[in-house]
Simulated scan of single mutants.
Amino acid sequence: MWVLAAWVLLGTVTAGSAQLQFNAIKSIEINTNEKNVILPCLVNNLQLNNITFLFVKWKLRGQEFFSFDGYKPELRRAANFSSAKFVSPAELPKGIASLSLDRKEAPAGNYTCEVTESNREGITTVELIYVRSSSSSPVESILITLFMILAIIFYWSQLGVVASKFEVKYKKKVSLIVAGGIVTVAAAVGFILFLSDGFTPKTQAGLGLVIIPAVILVPTLYILLRAVFENNLPHFAIVLVVVKSLGYLIAVVGFALCVSAYTRSHGSVVIAGLAVFAFVALASLIYVIIIGSSMTDHQPPRKAVEEPLNAHIAT
């Protein structure tokens, strides 16, 4: 009779602990100057404490990148997570399934750890957040924002000068306004996302909205200069377009380096590109105001020339 009671009691205990339990860690913050990342996964109610019965899976945003099968035993890693390894393989039977990663292979986001012991299993999620290192200055973020704002202001100013002093077709004028509006709105949203702390996916997206749509301001500069000088585009005007293109390219390279490193450590490259970008916008604005205005001062408007000619033909 006592054997039956013990069996019932054991079954009750086992059923009550069928779900593995973890030390809940919702998020970890990693300084951007750290070389390695430790993703915690601590099970506190393993029973067998035998690696043979353990199966561990790590996922990032639902995609599996690391797994361990203790029965075989077998360890698998995704190609882009080659540095992934258990912090302490010897303590895995005790429930320590924490993972160590090279920071360059560990993007910010939600990581899930799934552990199975025989017929018992459990899952825990931890969010990896990168925060700005003490060596990085918020001045970089301010400069990126400032140079992009100046570039946009100079564009709108140049568009206003060209539209008021030179003949621009209505459709072309509307296209230039729409193009400037796209860049302005995208940059405004980007600033809101980018100026937050750390370099999370949100701030990466913000920097992307600031940099990528700005490519529109390169061909629009060429169109504005063509509206002023028509087919006789001076060499200096061509140089402005080329230099602005190079500035944009530098900014894009800096953005790509920041994203690939998951930090703002290459923010200086972005700043250099946007500084060139904004300087060319200012130079082209001054060029249009001074040179373009002198052209209109010394050359009669087309309508003034065409009206006497049409009157002569009519007589």
Score class of each variant (00 low, 15 high):
Phe277Glu: 03
Ser27Arg: 10
Leu75Ile: 08
Leu217Tyr: 02
Leu101Thr: 00
Met148Ala: 07
Leu224Asn: 00
Phe55Leu: 13
Gly273Lys: 04
Arg264Thr: 11
Tyr111Arg: 00
Pro73Glu: 06
Ala108Met: 11
Ser293Thr: 15
Ser83Ala: 04
Val43Met: 08
Pro300Phe: 07
Arg120Gln: 11
Ile177Asp: 04
Val228Gln: 00
Val13Trp: 13
Asp197Lys: 10
Ile129Phe: 02
Leu246Val: 15
Lys59Tyr: 15
Tyr130His: 06
Arg302Thr: 13
Val259Glu: 08
Gly16Thr: 06
Arg76Trp: 12
Leu20His: 07
Ser100Lys: 08
Lys171Pro: 02
Glu29Phe: 02
Ser268Val: 11
Gly180Val: 08
Phe236Asn: 07
Val183Asn: 04
Ala163Arg: 11
Ile149Asp: 03
Glu64Asp: 11
Val189Arg: 06
Gln299Lys: 12
Thr112Gly: 03
Ala283Arg: 03
Ser293Leu: 12
Phe255Asp: 02
Asp69Phe: 10
Pro219Glu: 00
Val270Ile: 15
Gln63Ala: 13
Lys57Cys: 01
Leu150Cys: 12
Gly122Ala: 13
Tyr155His: 09
Val276Ala: 14
Val305Pro: 04
Asn31Ile: 07
Glu34Pro: 02
Gly70Asp: 08
Phe154Ala: 09
Ala304Gln: 10
Tyr71Ile: 02
Gln299Asp: 14
Pro308Gly: 13
Leu225Ser: 00
